[in-house]
Each structure stands twice: as structure tokens, then as C-alpha cells.
Nucleic acid binder design. Structure first.
Ligand SMILES: [Mn+2]
Ligand SMILES: [Mn+2]
Ligand SMILES: [Zn+2]
Ligand SMILES: [Zn+2]
Lengths: 135, 135
DNA sequence: TTTCTAGTTTATAATAATTCTAAAGTAAAA
DNA sequence: TTTTACTTTAGAATTATTATAAACTAGAAA
């Protein structure tokens, strides 16, 4: 991902390109593979990788702005912390309860043959499959 | 569900049949349809239905003992509160984000034709399908 | 029965994740 | 360069949950 794309992500999220935000955006979007994270784990990565200070509130605000703009997704996994996902395509997950680790499954790798129709007055927004793992 | 079954649920959870626990067990297990709840919503139902007082800690403790014994399941849905489910069979859910409402889908109503195999050294524990709804 | 004991309930404190606040700092318009 | 609106930050507030410890009670023992 090019530098310009980072700035585009910020702009389309309604965020000025401040020092902290640019670092957060670079860390999240300048990568090949999906990154699943919590605000806490992101903070640790950021302070390790850069020499800046990041207030938790800044990370929360920035991550939420990205999510609102559709540049990040939230994933529901057991536990108290909120997980975010840089993969914003429709996809599924392996989930390892013991390590709290998520692994992406491309939508094409899951084929569903039959589902019930939505309750009256409701429509299907999307389908999420979780394959829970054990050892 | 008969009164004796309530006591069995308590016994198999390692819980003495106290006034509060019997009321909680009756409320949760003496019903036809699945009940999805949070500790907070359960507390409201209990105080409305009975004339007893239920400390939140008692409800948390009792619900967790039932879960540990396999009489309740936890469901992962967006939001900060933990949801529990009286349906302990393998099944799936419709989920309405706007109302935070869960609706059961029997396992037989979902047929999956293809899934990837588990990562090396891991096995599949179970598969959960969430069908997210919109209006 | 009454007594005893381990287990239970409860109010309240502690903790953990997240959100709020308001003062000090900064990007970008004027 | 000055001004202005937006941003960062430390710390306070909030929310869900868990821990604590004193008062209470179910069931065993006497
Ligand atoms: Mn969750
Ligand atoms: Mn959740
Ligand atoms: Zn993912
Ligand atoms: Zn259910």
C-alpha cells in the first residue's frame, strides 16, 4: 500500500493526517496479510515500532473512525475485548479459543448449500461462519 | 420441564437448592423455547416474576455454574455484555444488530457443503453460523 | 429438634475495557 | 503570521464483571 493510500484512508475517515494517525494508518494498512487486533495489542505494536507516544484514547478514536468509514471491521469473539480486522471483505474465521487467535477463511472456501429464510420483515445482511478450533 | 429436573440441574452443577437458585433454574429451564439473555436482562425478569431479591453476584455465580456444567451456552454477539443461551444443542443464529436479538436456527436448517481443513495440529471443535439481519 | 458447619447471599469494593472531559497542542485556513 | 477548529493527552467517569468478607442458611450431626 502506497503512502498516498494511507492519506486517502485518513481523508475518507474524516481525519486530519496527524503524526499519530499517520503511524496508526501505516501500521494497519501498509501490510500484505490480514491483521486481527485489539486496541491494547495495537498500542503495544505501535510503541514498539515507532518512537511516539500514543494515548489510548487516540487509538480508540482513530480505530473507531476507520471502522465507521468501513476501513476496518469488528469481529465477535469470546472475551471482553473488542477485536478488529483489517480484512473488510466478506470472509470467515477459524477461532482458537485457547490462544484467542483468529485466522481468515476466504469466502470462497466456504460453500453453504442451505440456509433458512430471514424472519418476516427482515433481510439477510451477511453470513459469518466461525470454525472453532481445539488441539 | 418438571420440578425434579430443576433440582437435577442444580445438583449436577454442584449447587445446593437455595431459594434464589431454584427460582433462577425454574426461570431458565422451565420453558418451551430457547431463552437468550444477559445477566442484566435475567435479573430484570427475575425481580418482575418473583418477589425475591437477587444480588447480581448470585446471578453471575449461578449462571456460570450452569454454564460450566453444560446447562447453558455463551453466545458471542457484538456489544459488551455476555449473552447466554438455554439451547445447548449445536445450532446457529439469526442476529439482529439493531435490537441485539438472537433467534435460533436448528442445525438441520443449515447445510454446509465445503469448509477448509483445520490448520496443522488443530481440530475442528464446532461450527457456528451467524446470519446477520437488517430491515 | 437443636446444634454445627460448610456453603450461600449480599452489599460493596476492586478490576478491566471503554468512553468522556477539558486543558494544552497543532494542522491548515485566513 | 495569525487565527481557528480540530486533536492529543492524562486522568476521570462509566460499564460489565469479578472479588471480598460479613451475615445468613441448608443439610448433616448430635
Ligand atoms: Mn465476544
Ligand atoms: Mn461479542
Ligand atoms: Zn478476518
Ligand atoms: Zn441459541
Amino acid at each position: 500500500m502506497k503512502k498516498l493510500d494511507i492519506f486517502k484512508k485518513l481523508r475518507t475517515s474524516g481525519l486530519r493526517p496527524t503524526k499519530q494517525r499517520v503511524e496508526i494508518a501505516k501500521f494497519l494498512f501498509d501490510r500484505e496479510k490480514t491483521f486481527h487486533f485489539t486496541v491494547e495489542s495495537l498500542e503495544k505494536h505501535l510503541t514498539k515500532k515507532t518512537n511516539f507516544k500514543f494515548a489510548l484514547a487516540t487509538i480508540y478514536n482513530t480505530v473507531h473512525a476507520f471502522k465507521k468509514a468501513g476501513h476496518l471491521n469488528a469481529v465477535d469473539v469470546r472475551g471482553k475485548k473488542t477485536y478488529f480486522d483489517t480484512n473488510i471483505t466478506n470472509h470467515h474465521h477459524f477461532y482458537d479459543d485457547e490462544t484467542s487467535e483468529l485466522i481468515d477463511i476466504d469466502a470462497s472456501e466456504v460453500v453453504i448449500q442451505k440456509i433458512p429464510r430471514a424472519p418476516n420483515g427482515k433481510k439477510i445482511k451477511n453470513i459469518e461462519v466461525f470454525i472453532n478450533l481445539k488441539n
